[in-house]
């Protein structure tokens, strides 16, 4: 039996034909109802992702409001001490931000150049079959659990460095940041490589025709043409580094950096222990902090800071990716 196509819009006239009540009409009505119902169910599932975001925002704000009432936003942002466990606790986020900043910088100093060079090599130099093998293997670097990376940083990389600099402390941001950088390499290289390979052959041929070699073509033609996609990859890498938790919690120590106001640049030294925002949240969670006390609220204030920071990077990355898709 051939039935007319029913779209969701056509469902209403079909339902009016109930009095005829033949088998085909009944079937059609049932199909229309199922169709409508499933559309609703699927829409609800899609909307649930918004509920998750709203939930995160609502909880981070509502749980940290009492904290900001007690500490004050100004002290939170400008105080240079983070000492929740002291008799007179001080809650300045700056030392934790410095920890996050230093480890992120170390990680990016590894991941951005190495990731970019690997991406250029894979996209412009390596033979296609080699590329298809290397890429998934390289992506395994991002699949290794971060706690395993933490172990590796603490018990392999740091001892290696201690042979070169004997006074490097066991917990330091250098080893943690470096290993974090290695973890981020595939995020940078894979996305950048996708962006560069999306650049039309035409542009490369133009460059070759006027005498460009491969590397000049890659850096002067392909790289600029793929820039928004590459920038999106960088932003994703930064976002990962800022939010990374276990590597720094295991290998960088959980003591906030102490900032000496007379020598503020010392705080930037990666060869010292330092807690990041994420490591602080972990160290509090491991202790027994009671629901509702200020230590509990402090981790939500720290989480809110983290969320705001990564939100900026994530949205920037999304916009950049959209632009790179539309380019060709």
């Amino acid at each position: 039996m051939v039935q007319p196509r029913e779209s969701a819009q056509a469902a209403t006239p079909v339902e009016r034909s109930v009095p005829r009540a033949d088998a085909a009409a009944g079937l059609r009505i049932r199909r229309a109802i199922v169709d409508r119902a499933m559309q609703g169910v699927l829409a609800l599932a899609a909307a649930s992702s918004i509920a998750v975001t709203l939930g995160i925002v609502y909880i981070l704000i509502s749980e940290s409001v009492p904290f900001f009432r007690a500490v004050g936003l100004k002290d939170f942002l400008t105080d240079t001490m983070w000492t929740p466990q002291f008799a007179v606790p001080r809650y300045g986020i700056v030392p934790l931000l410095m920890g996050t900043l230093v480890t992120t910088m170390v990680a990016l100093a590894v991941a951005l150049p190495v990731g970019t060079i690997i991406a250029i090599w894979l996209s412009e130099f390596a033979p296609a079959r080699l590329r298809e093998t290397v890429k998934p293997v390289l992506e395994l670097l991002a699949a290794v659990p971060t706690v395993v990376y933490g172990y590796f940083a603490l018990l392999f990389v740091t001892p290696l460095f201690q042979r070169l600099w004997p006074d490097l402390p066991t917990f330091n941001m250098l080893g943690a940041g470096l290993v974090m950088g290695i973890m981020i390499i595939p995020y940078v290289s894979s996305l950048s490589e996708d962006a560069m390979r999306a650049v039309p052959m035409l542009l490369r041929e133009g460059s070759f025709a006027v005498g460009g070699n491969k590397i000049v073509t890659a850096t002067r033609v392909v790289f600029p043409a793929a820039l928004s996609g590459i920038a999106a990859a960088y932003v994703l890498g930064i976002s990962r580094a800022v939010g990374e938790t276990m590597i720094v919690a295991v290998a960088a120590g959980q003591q906030p950096i102490s900032i000496d106001p007379s020598r503020p640049l010392d705080a930037m030294n990666p060869g010292q222990p330092g807690a990041t925002i994420t490591a602080f949240i972990v160290s509090v969670s491991l202790g027994d902090v009671q629901h509702g006390e200020i230590g509990y609220q402090a981790i939500f204030a720290a989480g809110l800071t983290l969320f705001v920071a990564t939100l900026g990077f994530n949205v920037a990355g999304y916009v950049l990716r959209k632009r790179f898709r539309q380019a060709y």
Partner: peptide
């Protein structure tokens, strides 16, 4: 946009929520 952002939210923030 929301899903793109959620994919980049640090895992520990999910833990806090």
């Amino acid at each position: 946009i929301n899903i793109a952002n959620l994919a980049g939210v640090p895992s520990i923030v999910y833990g806090l929520m």
